[in-house]
Design a binder for these strands. Structure first.
Length: 490
RNA sequence: CGGGGUGUGGCGCAGUUGGUAGCGUACUACGUUCGGGACGUAGGGGCCGGAAGUUCGAGUCUUCUCACCCCGACCA
């Protein structure tokens, strides 16, 4: 049936691309590496945004907005930060165009900027520049701000949603009076992300510390959530950084504490991006198309009429519209698709491709029996039930689907997590099926880099809950106190 | 930046030794259909990525360019 999609097992990345295009989520644009997010894809992003925004506000944060442009000089203030982003910055050098003698549009050389502007790859610098003016006393703290924005990172290779030159995200930037409070904030937010991922996206994640090598540019500690995709590769789904006093020092943000002493402010930053769309796709979708978690599906239930003529459609529509209204009253988003230009079979396939969790089909046979056909996307099963039962049945079914796809993803991860002690086995696992590898590591950057060179796997994180366990580094054989999470990643 | 590939109606493709562009699909109209991607009939839509050259004649040959996609190195 899924002849419209590349088979997932034959060519995973082609399957992914096909899916994004054919499910009408996004398409490539006229600008290299930048995508057009189409209405259906954007609707999913809006659901993600709405829930995250709710969670941020529930944990005391407020939204604000800072400029797209950052003066170049700001970047030179935090050394590690500039080193991390310098290679991928878009730079604005002029502010005017003009027509030349041949009628071509050219950059007006007289309109050169005194100081170039960087299009933000992330906003720490411009935000901390503002915070300097906002913070004088411990009474001004904490500042708990989030920003919904677009950022630009001039990546060499891009993929729809997973890595685009411009992407949408949220970035939280908080300021605190104490080290403990900032650390607590950074941990709190990685927990918010993990909760969102598991509850809303139905994707289990591993929370942990990033190794020094993988840490955010300018951070003292980076926490991350890592999800396992169906091709055995890891996807970093969110990060939360403990920035220490680095940015406060770089931007000279000091405050007077309770005892009248001057100190630098403690900081965190945290973010998730449209990459989460990629996580949802690669975490759940199958050869029939997307499988959306009910909590993030723009359309949770679609109703499709099956009819022989217009009169019949009229009768069916009366019932279908009643059902739609009844379900909507329960807070469920419903689409009634009575378009006449496609047959039912076509619509079935199309909504499967789009990952709509529940499909209701209603035809003359059902009208006679007062029944309706209920099909679920996650396992593609169908059942016929009495119409008056659906108001009770559908909400439960949506919950059930949400839970089922979570469990499916969790089982997949369990089956593809390997405890490995020998280097040979390490390589074998990666070449056979990929997946998560829990292995001992001697804690050195050199070993981490050698492992990356020879296996293309990186330390995804040092899991918070990785128990203390004496062992030997899988690569160097040197002693180690706990296992860390390795994988090839996106 | 290296390796590979592709540019021809909206989309997917064909186009032979150079001879004036075709198929599928989508679209429009009408009719028959409608419980897993229906069918018939009629219709509209393309200076073949761009430039220069060879030729009586170029989608096709030559040179140069541009763009995009895929695979690596870099990254959320």
């Amino acid at each position: 049936m899924a002849k419209f999609l590349t088979n997932r097992d034959e060519n995973y990345s082609q399957w992914y691309n096909d899916l994004v295009i054919k499910a009408d989520l996004a398409e490539n644009s006229a600008v290299r590496g930048c995508m057009v997010i189409k209405p259906y894809g954007y609707a999913i992003w809006e659901k993600i945004q709405a829930e995250l925004d709710r969670l941020f506000k529930a944990t005391g944060h407020v939204n604000a907005y800072f400029p797209l442009f950052i003066p170049k000089s700001f970047f030179s203030k935090e050394a590690a930060h500039v080193k991390g982003f310098a290679k991928e910055c878009a730079v604005v050098t002029h502010y005017r165009l003009k027509n030349d003698e041949n009628g071509n549009v050219v950059v007006d050389p007289t309109a050169k900027l005194e100081e170039e502007l960087i299009i933000r790859p992330t906003s720490e610098t411009i935000i901390w520049h503002s915070y300097k003016n906002w913070i004088k006393s411990y009474r001004d703290l904490p500042i708990l701000i989030n920003q919904w924005a677009n950022v630009v990172r001039w990546e060499m290779r891009t993929r729809l949603f997973l890595r685009t030159t411009e992407f949408l995200w949220q970035e939280g930037h908080t300021a605190h009076a104490t080290r403990e409070e900032a650390l607590e904030e950074a941990e709190k937010m990685i927990n918010v992300y993990a909760g969102f991922s598991e509850n809303s996206m139905a994707l289990p994640v591993i929370k942990g510390y990033k190794s020094e090598n993988e840490r955010f540019a300018g951070a003292l500690d980076t926490f991350a959530i890592e999800a396992l995709m169906q091709d055995g590769k890891a996807l970093q789904a969110g990060t939360s950084h403990f920035l220490g006093q680095n940015f406060a020092k770089a931007f000279d943000v000091q405050f007077t504490d309770r005892t009248g002493k001057l100190d630098y402010v403690w900081a965190t930053s945290w973010g998730v991006s449209t990459r989460l769309m990629g996580a949802i796709i690669m975490g759940h979708a199958d050869n029939h198309g997307l499988v959306l978690p009910p909590k993030l599906a723009p359309i949770q239930v679609v109703i499709i009429p099956i009819y022989k003529n217009i009169e019949q459609l009229g009768t069916l529509s009366d019932t279908a519209k009643k059902i739609k209204a009844g379900l909507e009253a329960l807070g469920i988003s419903v689409k009634y698709d009575d378009r006449d230009n496609n047959k039912p079979g076509w619509k079935f396939a199309d909504y499967e491709l789009k990952g709509v969790p529940v499909r209701l089909a209603i035809g003359p046979r059902d009208l006679e029996n007062n029944t309706i056909e209920v099909a679920r996307r996650d396992n593609l099963t169908k059942e016929t039930i009495p119409i008056d039962k659906i108001y009770e049945h559908i909400p439960k079914l949506l919950d059930d689907i949400q839970e089922n796809i979570y469990n499916k993803a969790l089982n997949f991860r369990k089956e593809n997590t390997f405890y490995v002690d020998k280097w040979d086995d390490f390589l074998k696992v990666l070449d056979n099926q990929g997946g998560f590898i829990m292995a001992h590591w001697d804690g050195t950057v050199e070993t981490e880099e050698k492992i990356k060179e020879e296996s293309k796997a990186t330390i995804r994180c040092i899991p918070f809950d990785s128990p203390e366990e004496k062992g030997k580094c899988v690569y160097s054989g040197k002693p180690s106190n706990r296992r860390v999470l390795f994988a090839r990643s996106y």
